[in-house]
Nucleic acid binder design. Structure first.
Lengths: 337, 337
DNA sequence: CTGAAAGCGCTTACAG
DNA sequence: CTGAAAGCGCTTACAG
């Protein structure tokens, strides 16, 4: 704020150009000069004005992170991992919350708010309509989508259908035949939303094993929270008392399912099995079996993709799909009938 | 990126100064001129360069949010509420993660990384040493601390000691006499860390009722996670099988306690009562009784305090303390002996 | 109510 | 290897 490059320059008897080059480690500066500049800058407590540097260079050294709600586990996890990766590389993380569940249709994203503020954008769990997509493209900066794939853009995620299919197969292997499903709804037209693909995984797997996969066995909620999972499970069990297992589209919903089962005086795993998907940190405390996704790696990968794109490396629409892992705990056990 | 203020000005036959004033709603612009400028800017798709505006005005319209780990529930919650408040006011949120549990002493905060990038800073759950504090002050911008009070700075939080005391009294009222405590450790010397004050609340209350509050009844962990709460509870119960209730310094630890109790074949509430502090979203799924803090209000209040300080309103070291609420669920019930 | 012009503090061709 | 100078795109006194 107070000491500027000019002062460092005059103190060193060099031009501001040389100070600028020396400080940023650019070539074309004599070793002695560089050392002198570095020391002087240090002594004077000089910090370059990021705002002036941005204006002059055209680079902001900031990344925009657009997501629905950072207080939710998955988003917080991805954001944290991405932020650390960005910070190590010298980038700041600008977070934008764009709630997608406050109405039937979420608020549109206006890329103007980040125009000129970031060098790249990472979008979590949001699907953009053609207009938003066009505006985003018009920004002329790299964009990476996480969790929900946007055609033509870089993407990081898991194979949601396969994850659900494996969870479902696990329950079938344990001897379950009537397996209910807890799914989420998307307020926007988004066929690639994870919850839709997970539902597909359940549905197709059930069919493949000639088991029922009717709508009657599927209960959808608006937001996939534990409390909605609780309510949905009660509705499901009231309607279909013959169910012996439940596959939830997310661990948080699965936790709600476990809560509901317990509050009915039943025991998860023994009376009704439950499987989730995600690998939530609190899953262990619920003894929840799940298909875990490598959240930390996903966040880091998304950040790296953005960083690579800024550096001109990698393709514009690179896709990284991580494998999921079966985590067996006591919420899913053999069916005994 | 492409259309600049100059173009809008010449299209309107006015100076850039007038365009600037008109667009920002400043006084001193004729109504007709303003409308014309607004429309032209709109038609041309003009968006002011934030970076140029910052350099010229000295304001960044960004707020720095410094915290240990946004993937943890409490931080994510506060961040989300603060971000929305900032965004409504036209401010961007720059998030900085400064892990405080990766070693015996956390990494020092270097305010240089945010120098010139933000108009104010909100610090969550971090206590700064004299050097960090001095550097922070040197930034010359408003700073608001949340959760951990830093003398001389604005603060938003709850009365942690009182919250723990009330939780403890609740258990005593239910007839419990041997109440164990799960606490956290602070790696830095910080007597005002919430977990320390909560421990005080338990300790003093037990003493007041002439009940045991020895170290033997207190089990401390490094990070207050559910898994550490699980381990700590097992250690505590192995050592003191006479305990009938546990007060945890955080809901996440309480969840671990409930997990431990269940895995011992016991039933929370019936065999051993558990109380937490925080009001975690997943508390209901655990049937966890707790002293809830108004997290959303705290995040909003912290943001408002920062905004007010930027606007020159409010005192430099304003303090906002929110009340906590007893939430009774089935994890804490009457002792039957 | 409006404009000309300096200034914010850097970076970057362009010369040498 | 180093410097002079233009330029990044706004905002803000200062005049009128």
């Amino acid at each position: 704020m107070t000491v500027r490059i000019e002062e460092v320059a005059s103190a060193c008897q060099v031009s501001t150009a040389t100070v600028s080059r020396a400080l940023r480690g650019l070539p074309g500066v004599g070793e002695k000069t560089r050392q002198h500049v570095l020391k002087t800058a240090q002594d004077l407590g000089y910090t370059p004005s990021p705002t002036a540097a941005s204006l002059a260079s055209g680079h902001t050294h900031s990344i925009g992170l657009v997501q629905p709600d950072m207080s939710r586990w998955f988003f917080g996890k991805i954001l944290e991992s991405a932020e650390r990766t960005f910070r190590k590389a010298g980038y700041d993380a600008l977070v934008y919350s764009l709630p997608d569940y406050l109405g039937p249709v979420r608020e549109r994203f206006n890329p103007d708010v980040i125009k000129g503020k970031v060098d790249a954008v990472v979008v979590l769990s949001l699907f953009f309509d053609p207009e938003e997509e066009a505006q985003l493209r018009a920004l002329g900066i790299p964009v990476v989508f996480v969790s929900v794939q946007q055609p033509g853009f870089a993407y990081v995620g898991i194979d949601d259908e396969e994850a659900a299919a494996r969870a479902c197969r696990h329950l079938i292997t344990l001897g379950h035949k009537r397996i209910g499903h807890l799914s989420g709804q998307t307020n926007d037209k988004c066929p690639v939303a994870p919850t839709q693909r997970r539902r597909e995984g359940w549905c197709k797997t059930m069919e493949r094993f000639h088991l029922e996969s009717s709508e009657d066995l599927d209960e959808a909620v608006t937001i996939m929270t534990a409390s909605n999972g609780y309510l949905a499970t009660n509705r499901l069990l009231d309607r279909r008392p013959d169910i012996t297992a439940i596959l939830a589209s997310s661990d948080e919903m699965a936790m709600g399912a476990i809560h509901a089962i317990r509050s009915r005086g039943l025991q998860p795993g023994r009376d009704i099995s439950v499987m989730g998907i995600d690998g939530h940190d609190l899953g262990a405390a619920f003894d929840l079996s799940t298909m875990a996704q490598p959240v930390h790696q996903e966040g880091t990968a998304a950040a790296r993709l953005a960083l690579d794109a800024i550096a001109g490396r990698g393709s514009e629409s690179e896709t990284v799909v991580f494998p999921t892992t079966l985590v067996e705990r006591s919420s899913a056990k053999s069916a005994h009938k």
